[in-house]
């Protein structure tokens, strides 16, 4: 039990930063989705860490949050990837910078 809370949090922050940088930098929609999943996982890690280091771990609050989060992430991934496929079918591309139909 040597690793401290801060270590986990820093790991989470690193994971989040990597995910964000990837989501911002990469053009491929699938990679953007992967970045988003990474950020979501960083948040999940925070939940688990705070649950473990929190004052009332027996209430399982953090675990529950993570469980639901994972479920939602699964739904999000399914929908997002379906969208990527649908858009690809229309535009013959998966580059997010080509998707600018909503520009002002």
């Amino acid at each position: 039990m040597t690793p401290s809370l801060n270590q986990y949090l820093v790991l989470s922050a690193l994971l989040f930063g990597i995910g964000l940088a990837g989501a911002l930098a990469r053009r491929n929609a699938v990679l953007v989705l992967i970045g988003l999943e990474l950020m979501l996982n960083a948040a999940n890690l925070n939940f688990i860490a705070f649950w473990r280091f929190g004052p009332h771990p027996e209430k399982l609050m953090g675990l529950m949050f993570v469980l639901f989060s994972i479920a939602i992430a699964a739904g999000e991934a399914a929908l997002g990837l379906a969208l990527v496929i649908a858009i690809y079918r229309h535009r013959r591309t998966a580059q997010v910078d080509r998707f600018d139909s909503l520009k002002g």
Partner: peptide, 13 residues
């Protein structure tokens, strides 16, 4: 186009 994403990611980090 890393310059578009990495600085922001680094800043947030």
């Amino acid at each position: 186009s890393w310059w578009k994403g990495v600085p922001v990611g680094a800043l947030v980090l």
